[in-house]
Write a protein that binds this DNA or RNA. Structure first.
Lengths: 213, 213
DNA sequence: TAAATTTTGGAGTTGACACTCCATTTTGTT
DNA sequence: AACAAAATGGAGTGTCAACTCCAAAATTTA
């Protein structure tokens, strides 16, 4: 019975990896993620990844069955990256103060990249959604987790009375996530953070509109 | 003195095109736009375009110096497409009623595509922004025009007293555009229109918050 | 220490893709 | 009708990219 991940090499599946092996595998994924994010998946050649990660062809294909399997690993990597960062750096988003900190954090993230690049997950969605159904589904799930982080915070705020009972955390979380995605995309096009700032500030202003009972 | 468009064939520049020539050229651009939108630019081969548009290699390279010139034409085509559609199908966005119609129009557009595909301009931004600086600049300008359409409507609403004088049409237009982009991206990932609906409805709800003086 | 397993090196191979070239047909002009 | 210009057909060409293969080194296990 196939696992649905037939393209994965034995080395990639189980935990039968040496410490050295884990290191090289990790190096490959990190390099691939970086390159695919800035150039897109199709424009990133496995040769580029090889030289940048200082590995040979046989090494790369030892850990990943083919390029598609590597893309799969990159999606997982990006998902962890985004969710961990959101959780650790921003903390629970269950107050207006926390949401303001979160806003500043996201804006700073984009400012440090000089306005270049979009959301790691959003970029992959745009790149893969129409050509790789499995990738699309995985990315949708990742975005769903992110949405859940926001929803949990908003739900807590409502339950605590900080938000009106009429406020719908489901909808607001989705709208907030859309503001991030749209803001990042426009910022990427314009090479500055203003669009992101305005999108987030407007979304938060609307939230304040729903404060208290 | 170069025009900055050195790659364009003579046929592509001037108006020295036969009716037949214009038709072929147009067919190429339309097919290229469609394919590049659904597969991305890098995954769209000129061979694909040739067979789909029923033209030979020499025809394609007669009208376009190289693939990059074709991409340029596609950007112009998509820009016209989006702006014309926005202007004609939605009309001036200078009242809440008009904005509601606009919302329904955008949602219907996405629904007809089964939730698949993103914004024609947004997708190209994500695809090209980091690898083709000129394309990025052109797309930023296109989005700026779109933003202008929204801003003009909101300005009219404010001047007419339908919106509070405190409302900033510049910011609100940008936030609205971000909502469209983010909503479409999330819809593309999830294959349904809910995210787009929620993003737009939330943005419009915030607008109503700023109604009157 | 010896056998088994994992990791690495690097030279192929196969196919695909962007682009060229030249001859031929069609269309426009006088 | 005759000439010029534009449009088309289609067979190349050179390069690059994904993936294979076999053997050697390093590491783990017995």
């Amino acid at each position: 019975m196939a696992t649905g991940q037939d393209t994965a090499t034995a080395a990639a599946r189980g935990g039968n990896l040496t410490a050295k092996g884990r290191a090289t595998r990790g190096r490959i994924v990190e390099v691939a993620a970086q390159l695919m994010l800035e150039r897109g998946v199709a424009r990133t050649t496995v040769e580029d990844i090889q030289s940048e990660a200082r590995v040979s062809a046989s090494q790369l294909y030892h850990y990943f069955g083919d390029k598609k399997a590597l893309v799969h690993a990159v999606i997982e990597h990006m998902t962890d990256q985004v969710l961990c960062t959101q959780r650790q750096a921003a903390g629970p988003l269950d107050s207006f103060a926390a949401l303001e900190r979160w806003r500043d954090f996201v804006v700073d993230f984009q400012r440090q990249r000089g306005g270049a690049g979009g959301c790691p997950l959003g970029t992959l969605v745009s790149d893969l959604a129409e050509t790789d159904p499995q990738a699309r589904a995985e990315l949708a799930a990742s975005l769903g987790q992110w949405e859940g982080l926001l929803r949990d915070g908003l739900t807590a705020m409502r339950d605590r009375g900080e938000l009106s009972p009429a406020a719908d955390p489901d909808q607001l979380a989705l709208a907030l996530l859309a503001a991030v995605q749209g803001g990042l995309l426009l910022s990427q096009a314009r090479r500055d953070t203003r669009a992101l700032e305005v999108a987030l500030d407007t979304a938060l202003a609307h939230l304040r509109t729903l404060a208290r009972a």
